[in-house]
């Protein structure tokens, strides 16, 4: 999620949000767009080694499958300053 309070985080924390990637071998959370069809964006939980599609879910939702939930919760991004600054609240618009 884009940090709302950009001014509250450092260049390095913003760089981390903008450039650094989750790039696992295994369960991966990603965003796809149905380009030649309904053109809608959606989320997907996919295995980057077996290419198995584990789950799809709507924009704004979080994964429901066991593998998807674990990947979501364990991602290092959950603990970054950028992610904290993305939550609406004190100082954030």
């Amino acid at each position: 999620m884009r940090p709302l309070a950009e001014h509250q985080i450092s260049d390095s924390e913003f760089g981390e949000y903008l450039f650094l990637r989750d790039n696992p071998k295994g369960v991966f959370l990603e965003r796809w767009r149905h380009q030649s069809g309904c053109r809608r964006w959606f989320n997907i939980v996919r295995d980057t080694y077996s290419h198995e599609i584990i789950e799809t879910y709507a924009m704004g939702a979080t994964p429901k499958s066991k593998a998807g939930k674990a990947a979501y919760q364990q991602s290092w991004r959950r603990k970054t300053a950028a992610e904290a600054a993305a939550k609406p609240g004190k100082g954030n618009r």
Partner: peptide, 9 residues
């Protein structure tokens, strides 16, 4: 090593 890279495979 607990480092994150800007790389996509």
């Amino acid at each position: 090593a607990g480092i994150h890279l800007p790389i996509a495979s």
